[in-house]
Design a protein around this nucleic acid. Sequence first.
DNA 1: GATAATCCCTCCAGTCCCTGTAGGTTCAAG
DNA 2: CTTGAACCTACAGGGACTGGAGGGATTATC
Lengths: 142, 142
Amino acid sequence: MLTIGTLAKRTGTKVQTIRYYETIGLMPEPERTEGGQRRYGQAELDRLSFVRHGRQLGFSLEAIRDLLDLADNPAQSCADADSIARQQLKQVEDRIDRLVALRLELKRMISECGHDSVAQCRVLEVLRDHAECLTDHNSIGG
Amino acid sequence: MLTIGTLAKRTGTKVQTIRYYETIGLMPEPERTEGGQRRYGQAELDRLSFVRHGRQLGFSLEAIRDLLDLADNPAQSCADADSIARQQLKQVEDRIDRLVALRLELKRMISECGHDSVAQCRVLEVLRDHAECLTDHNSIGG
DNA sequence: GATAATCCCTCCAGTCCCTGTAGGTTCAAG
DNA sequence: CTTGAACCTACAGGGACTGGAGGGATTATC
């Protein structure tokens, strides 16, 4: 029987976040001690690990909820899970592309800077000048 | 003289977002027509492009504000801008690493799935089983 | 068995970065 | 001059947490 703090540490989650997951129905209401404190078992540890891992991988809580629903009703086909994964893969590749472009830009900014002299600092120009060519009207993320 | 809608289109921003940037002081209060509608010029287009580009590249509004402050006071050294860029680069590389790991995971999930049969669908197991090894107690981002 | 440190509880407000809606006004085209 | 799109303000909501106040429970130590 794990306390909420232990569960938090084991999964790299904040205690409040676990309680938040409970309020939105992503985590079940756990057992309580006589004093009213939450106690968790292996099932909850697994489930929270799943959630956290999904979040770290960029899934929205909504997508994670869908996957958990699939897990809770294993009699269904995995086509749904597959399509969720495919959708996610696209977004992930998009993000990687943009971040790689950013990395390049930042490296160039840093290499062109570092002279401690305004005349040679092009950080701001770089960011401004490339604004239009890179505007792709996509959502920024979040 | 550009309307807010035109500015929005040119920069891939929503109209409300531009007004929001104004309320938080990231964009200046623009000229108005007699009727009270906002009209923008090249300076605002540049500034907003800068902001959006920064956002697309993963900068927080706070970091962007810092950079804009530097741009507004060009008499300072660029050491500050440089350190902002360096900090950002680290975060970007972190995110890339995590996303690349995710991509791999997702690809494996998809390749192992697609059989439309529960017995062979390992999506959920993959996500759960790898939860602990990848827990790194880092912030998830945002 | 008392005490102190640490953890836990609820409730609620705040953060970040927008996004959407309601109800009304202005502008440009035909 | 009328229509319809675009604009205005003001405010609520959303996603995913995060932090704090004020108080109770548990555990380790003396």
